[in-house]
Simulated scan of single mutants.
Amino acid sequence: MGARAARDFRIVHLATHAEFKPGRPNNSYIQFNSQRLPLDRFKELGFDKPPVDDCGILILYR
């Protein structure tokens, strides 16, 4: 996500894997290569800084 911090993009498309488990948001995660991002930390990706105005697509595979 370093490229996102360096410049604004009008369209963001992520296709990755995820695991959704019942209970608290940190029980579920999005898999990025060798790193898991718990859903309660999703805001840390910074899609609101600056906001993605035109299009944001998140495709998650199990």
Rank of each mutant, 00 (worst) to 15 (best):
A5K: 14
N26R: 11
C55G: 07
A6S: 12
I11F: 03
D8W: 03
F47L: 15
G56Y: 13
R7Q: 15
T16L: 13
S34G: 08
Q31S: 05
P38R: 10
A3G: 00
P50D: 00
D54P: 00
A15G: 11
G46D: 09
K43H: 13
Y29A: 03
G23H: 06
F42H: 00
P38Y: 08
D48K: 08
P38D: 13
L45T: 03
G46M: 09
V12Y: 11
R62T: 13
R24Y: 06
F9C: 03
N27W: 00
R62F: 12
G56R: 10
G46R: 09
K43I: 05
E44M: 04
F9P: 03
G2N: 03
L14Y: 12
Q35L: 13
C55H: 10
Y61F: 10
P22F: 00
Q35F: 14
C55N: 06
A5P: 00
I11K: 09
I57V: 14
R41Y: 09
L14S: 05
I30P: 02
N33D: 15
P38H: 13
P38E: 12
R7E: 15
L58P: 01
P51V: 06
R10W: 01
L14T: 11
Y29I: 01
N27K: 08
G46K: 08
E44C: 02
L37R: 02
Y61I: 06
F42E: 00
L39F: 14
P25S: 07
Q31T: 03
R4E: 04
I11C: 05
I59R: 11
N33P: 00
A3S: 00
N33Y: 09
R7T: 09
L45M: 15
P38V: 12
P51K: 08
R36F: 07
L14N: 05
L60I: 05
H17P: 02
S28R: 05
V52E: 01
F9Q: 03
A3T: 01
D40R: 03
G23S: 07
R36C: 12
S34I: 04
Y61V: 06
C55S: 11
E44A: 09
H13Q: 13
V12C: 15
G2S: 04
Y61E: 13
C55Y: 10
F20C: 12
Q31V: 08
H13F: 07
E44I: 01
H17S: 14
I59N: 11
P51D: 03
S34D: 14
P50V: 01
A6L: 12
R41T: 04
G56Q: 13
R36P: 04
Y61S: 14
M1A: 11
Q31H: 11
D8Q: 15
D48Q: 14
K49R: 14
K21C: 07
S28W: 05
D53M: 06
